[in-house]
Design a protein around this nucleic acid. Structure first.
Lengths: 349, 349
DNA sequence: TGGCATAAAGTTACCGTTAACGCAACGATC
DNA sequence: GATCGTTGCGTTAACGGTAACTTTATGCCA
């Protein structure tokens, strides 16, 4: 069970004390040379740095975090890592946090509420300086723990409802409404919704609700839903679309919960001989990197993931510096492409 | 600069001592109730657990890690988080580590060697139980630090060369060779290579070398290379392919460093009126989720990312338990699709 | 030249947990 | 009934830093 320290690595990992001894100063002086260099004589500082370099000293942040007041860890809790759904958020978040010497500790709940509780607990046990978490809907116990931690909590991706502390995201219901309205404007009337809508994916549910509300408002027939609990992928989209059109051949537009599912939907429609966008329109959500490259190119909604990551980092730093909690709305954009372009573009009169 | 503890959270975070006091036992007994429950009387244990529940106790792993011998952190160093290149590896790695209560601490070097050194140092400062890192080619100082840490180091994605400790990956040169051989078998002769090949992306360089070696071996003319240092995306692929065919119209096959770049290459070819696969073949690497959904569907190489993540977790656990270092070769698969299917499939005689 | 602010280094007391050790109470053994 | 191994819990000393405080050396000014 012990970690292997074989082949000559028998010597122990250097500590502040090793450095201090070697240079002939107290431990605290070495610590100061790191934290507050200008309180140590320049010449002594140089000798200390040389010793650190020589011994390959790496500070022990466990000890630092325990002793000091700062911990430098930011817990990041996402619901999925699959495909690029949240990877780009983590990417830009991590880059921005790096400038403040904050380290990302990652957890992935896979849309599982029990797992979420366990992982949040686990993250908190590292006494992070802040926690960034996907979504604003969490089990009560999770909310309780996060609140009790007394650290900044930034909820990402979604907004609205009971924000624990600070939020950086957008309103998913209005995304759904925009999807419906775009389809309607393009002349589609019999809408369907297809994709992976997991029990704990409140965002997907909100988008669907927004879509349905807009359809109702436009006096359209009820949106036909055909969803699954499993994760979204092209194969799922292909299957769901095939089944959907078998039972509901009248459908003339399919909104997909994600681009990846839409890719499969497009494939199904091709196999079924339904022309897109003439016979059926397809709209999705996510702006996958391939959305503009499939044919027909996919109309979708592009949330600005890089910006969410960057703004989340800013929010974390602000909150650590005692700025009051706030909510930031992040822009998203409906990108109309071939898969829904039934109407000729308005004449530029 | 201090963390906000506003609105009634004035009370301090509970510690083992709080629990101990409340139950009327020593701190160590509470600690034991967590670590070795069967050394504490069942009735007492129940009271301790009740107190923990009531106070929302979350153990402080900084303290635990400092005091004990175990640290429960696994540092994961990747070169990119963009798109799904490594996200799925992290995903399956994290899931597998979870079973052993190991927490992922993430760092992203963005193919920057200086950043890699800084991040490895930062990760090591958390005294992780192990480090998983993309690639087997690292700056000397990084290797030195990782070796000196005296913990299991698992290098992922690539193999060969000087492995620090343990590796889980595949040989990228043979991927390149397979790509070339597939193109050749399909009747293509004038090969080109296109994509993002960053200075620190040794894997891309190895694939390219393998491709060139195979082309040379088959007595083909030199592979025409048109690469960029920036990250790969469809726009890059579109630009590079357009430029390539302007200067080298004789090219009849393009190997791409990544699927995402290939998506743009396909778009460029469509715009240029070159038929794929008849006039030009396109092969890529990565098996992006959309590869089977673009048209023509993309021939590509699929590395088994889930398996790499899973096997890396296994390697970490094995190494922590003192199993000797080893290297695992992970399978990859060339998936022939429409973009290179110039030859009729061999008759099944 | 004495007095005092200031700079530079040392002392000491934690931070919250684990691990080694100690010790009392108890049942089994001969 | 003295000996001995268990069981169950308490005591104490780290772990490697940080921060508050103290001490010593130095310079400056009246």
């Amino acid at each position: 069970m012990t970690v292997d320290l074989s082949e000559g690595a028998g010597r122990t990992v250097p500590t502040l004390a090793s450095i201090a001894e070697r240079v002939g100063v107290s431990v605290n002086t070495v610590s100061r040379a790191l934290r507050a260099p200008n309180t140590v004589r320049i010449e002594l500082r140089r000798r200390i740095n040389a010793a650190m370099e020589e011994l390959n000293y790496v500070p022990n942040r466990l000890a630092g975090g325990l002793s000091g007041t700062r911990s430098d860890i930011v817990g990041v809790v996402v619901t999925s890592l699959y495909y690029s759904e949240f990877a780009n958020i983590i990417d830009s978040l991590q880059l921005a946090l790096l400038e403040h010497d904050l380290q990302v500790m990652l957890a992935n709940t896979r849309y599982n509420a029990d797992q979420e509780l366990r992982l949040v607990r686990s993250i908190l046990s590292w006494r992070p300086a802040a926690v960034a978490i996907i979504g604003v809907d969490h089990p009560p116990k999770v909310v309780e723990l996060l609140k009790a931690a007394g650290i900044p909590i930034v909820e990402m991706w979604d907004t609205g409802g009971d924000v624990i502390d600070t939020a950086v995201g957008f309103d998913h219901a209005s995304v759904g409404a925009a999807q419906a309205n775009h389809l309607i404007a393009q002349g589609y009337r019999r809408l369907a919704f297809v994709g992976s809508v997991r029990e704990n994916d409140k965002r997907a549910q909100k988008r669907l609700s927004g879509l349905e509300a807009a359809a109702t408002k436009a006096s359209l027939p009820d949106v036909v839903k055909h969803t699954a609990q499993q994760g979204g992928n092209p194969e799922l989209g292909e299957r769901l679309a095939t089944e959907l059109l078998q039972s509901h051949p009248e459908i003339d537009a399919i909104a997909c919960n994600s681009d990846v599912v839409a890719f499969g939907v497009l494939r199904a429609l091709r196999k079924l001989g339904r022309r897109v966008p003439e016979d059926i329109g397809v709209i999705a959500f996510g702006d996958n990197e391939a959305a503009s490259c499939v044919s027909p190119s996919l109309t979708t909604v592009r949330p600005d993931r890089e910006r969410i990551g960057k703004l989340t980092a800013e929010a974390i730093v602000s909150r650590i510096n005692d700025v009051t909690p706030y909510t930031t709305l992040v822009e998203w954009e409906l990108i109309a492409r071939e898969s829904t372009s039934r109407m000729p573009p308005p004449s530029p009169s």
